[in-house]
Design a protein around this nucleic acid. Structure first.
Lengths: 204, 204
DNA sequence: GTCTATACTTCGATAGAC
DNA sequence: GTCTATCGAAGTATAGAC
């Protein structure tokens, strides 16, 4: 996966990812995406048709990739408590590779999915579905305590998504000397979360 | 606190809360806020000066209120593990009273605080500061296990904020029969989170 | 304090030549 | 596939009468 794709559509998607993550659907500017991707606007519309279609193409791609990571773990062997640990780690790794992902996820939650079609929503739905499957496995095999799958999904993923998205805001609060929120690298946050979720979810 | 304030500025703030929560700063429309608040646009600008000033006034108000709730608990008597439980409950109650709050919080995290001034950022900073104080108390008195205060803050609040904000998206996923995420009322989610955080944070 | 009308800007999208 | 030029809609904000 090259850092600077030579093909226009790929380069557009890459720039669009940052633009939509940083500014949201309403705040994103097609002009800016085209300029940063070094294509003119007409070219962008030629490839994607509309701002909304570009947004959907991007989200479908990223949600599908994220879903595949989780599904691979859920469908693999091993006890559910181990899978929970691995799934949190996989999400942390996915965010490390795709820094724009958590902000997009956050914004789509806030927007209520209004810009998405059924296909993109289905790709998004794979995430809670996969976690739900692991939780049900764990409760059945008694490696996890009885948990509501939806509650478990939010309890394990919301912290990672909000922490990763919140880096710029933490930077502002820290640099303005309002709170010092600078001393926790992402990898350590993931470890701490894994430990908290292990204590919270494991049957005993 | 009347449901339909008679004074224009109050009514504008109330409508603006829903508009900014539903659509974000960039997506919010001053025209729509004015129309729904039954004032004309010139009146809105007369009272608040600009879209940004209106946004800041709203966020300053809501962050201050939320911060006061938490501070009251943190400064009160009792062991820290109990305060953690109460603070989660207080946040759940605050959201029940101000349904727009979690979406605003989520969007501001994603926007990186770019629309806020120092005063509003300070009001926001009170939240992690207060949780940090409770965590430090608990670690000192050995009612909580050693925890990074920042990690603790995100672990306990991110789930509540994302779950509450995500109601419309869950509704879409459920009604389109992609996942059934409809069977978990907010109060039960808060209880489940309190139990998970108790297990995750308590020293033993 | 309240209104109508409008100035000014920006945005998404397209026409049409090459 | 690629470009320049531009259109029409929509947005924030204000002027100026009452």
């Amino acid at each position: 996966m090259p850092r600077t794709p030579t093909v226009s559509p790929d380069r557009i998607l890459q720039v669009a990812a940052r633009e939509f993550a940083d500014r949201g659907y309403a705040g994103a500017r097609v002009d800016r995406i085209a300029r940063l991707a070094r294509v003119n606007k007409a070219m962008l519309y030629y490839h994607f048709g509309s701002k909304k279609a570009l947004y959907r193409a991007l989200l479908l791609q990223v949600f599908s990739h994220a879903g595949q990571r989780l599904t691979a773990i859920a469908d693999g062997p091993g006890p559910a408590d181990r899978k929970i640990h691995d799934v949190i780690g996989a999400m942390g790794a996915f965010v490390a590779e795709h820094a724009f992902f958590p902000a997009i996820m956050l914004r789509e939650v806030a927007d209520g999915g209004v810009h998405l079609d059924r296909e993109t929503l289905a790709a998004l739905a794979a995430l809670p579905l996969t976690v739900g499957a692991i939780v049900r496995q764990g409760v059945a095999e008694r490696t996890l305590r009885p948990l509501n799958p939806i509650a478990a999904y939010f309890t394990m993923f919301a912290p990672i998504v909000m922490f990763m998205t919140g880096a710029p805001l933490r930077g502002q609060l820290t640099s303005r000397q309002l709170v010092d929120m600078s001393k926790l690298p992402p990898e350590r946050f993931v470890e701490q979360l894994q430990e908290s979720i292990r204590l919270a979810f494991t049957a005993r």
